[in-house]
Design a protein around this nucleic acid. Sequence first.
RNA 1: GGAAGGGUGCCAGAGUGGACGAAUGGAACGGUCUCGAAAACCGUCAGGGGUGCAAGCCUCUCGGGGGUUCAAAUCCCCCCCCUUCCGCCA
Length: 430
Amino acid sequence: MIDIRYLRSDPETVRELMARRNKPELIGLLDEALGFDGRMREITAERDAIRQQVNELSKQVGALRRSGDDKAAEGLQAESRSLGEKEQSLAAETDEVTAQLKDVLLRLPNIPHADVVVGSDDSQNPIITGPNNLPATFPAHQRVAHWDTATALGILDNERAVKISGAMFTMQRGAGATLARALCQYALDCNADAFEEIRPPSLVSTATLTATGQLPKFADDAYSMSKDDLWCIPTAEAPLTSIHAGEVLAEADLPIRYMAHSSCYRREAGSAGRDTRGMLRSHEFDKVEIFSIATPEGAPAMLTELTTRVERVIANLGLPYRIIEICTGDMGQSHHRSFDVEVYAPGCDAWLEVSSISWFSDYQARRGDIRMKRTGQKGTEFAHTLNASALAVPRVWAAIMENFRQEDGSVAIPSVLHPYMRGTTVIHPK
RNA sequence: GGAAGGGUGCCAGAGUGGACGAAUGGAACGGUCUCGAAAACCGUCAGGGGUGCAAGCCUCUCGGGGGUUCAAAUCCCCCCCCUUCCGCCA
């Protein structure tokens, strides 16, 4: 959620920044929010004044009852009762306006950081770094799609995955399955110096998925179990963010750094039929997430740290990559500023998004009620949350199949993964 | 899934209709004392919202939501969570 007080105090700036998202309807939502907020404050002032009178009268009633003056007490009670009725009608309106305001605020995206490159869509995302590790040309044996290579090697069996679960599910086997797990293990080990490993629940409550911003707006993208009010996590970001939901963290304890490997579940409701071959898009995939809660002033440095860490993992794998900044028109709902790491896959001839590094400012913290208390100061403020995919398995797996395919059709495993491969350094056909 | 007992501030814990946003103890923080420390003593010590330049004032919050009442931590209803026992179970 955006800060309604910021919007109230500087609506022009918020409108201007929000307009950069290139979604005209957002300005209308901002105005709606301002309208509800204004009405809300009117009612609140009125209600508080009535309550004050009721509280005062009640005290007097108590005193009169004790002194035995029941008659006078009854008079005041009647007065208080009528005030109570008036308050009740205001309470009803409060509920209504609160719900409306909350609904608008939950649907409004985050305000972009002032430095985010302004653009209308993904075609205007600037390249920040790279391309790195990119050869001038690729030999023909690397221009083979990973699904062909992997299926021929017997390490990808999507046909049976579809039999088991339906379209857009994948299944790795043998060295392919080991490779998927090796990637996770490697990504975790790369960040274990500073990040606490978490094994979070994969099924989470509505509140948890609302905190990160997936709900209510993107309910169709997530798998749900309505019987139990549970949702399959689309990313470990959701449970990691809610670890400290409703808590007040000490400034001295920040930044907090967590990492988690999890399966991720996505209905891909809006993208059926796109990238359905191979490993590029599926309903279930594995990912290692790195996550941080930071102070507002510490957040930019953390964004840099996360980016550096993600880059290191990809660079060490020897894959061609580049880092792009996400422009205002392409940024996700909760994002304040974000970068993507893309890996080049010569077989598909495409840059694949393998990581998104995001700073959410206090947007998620406000939704999840994650606050911090400054040392020696009264009161609290919302913390900042950030996260990044340290490694999304399927696309990196696919990129390895394509970049390290050898002339004989085998695939060489990047050396940093060898310790996790039970001795397999090259995957040969069976 | 069944039964019983619980949920109060940073922690422990009192409070069963009115003077309670909440006793008391501990922790923490500031101070006095001390060469320094300990002890002792004094003080501070919840969060949200509204309003105000500010000091402040008002309001809400005792797991969450509703209800009864002039008045609810306290009474009633629903839900959530925790503990123990039983059942089931990787």
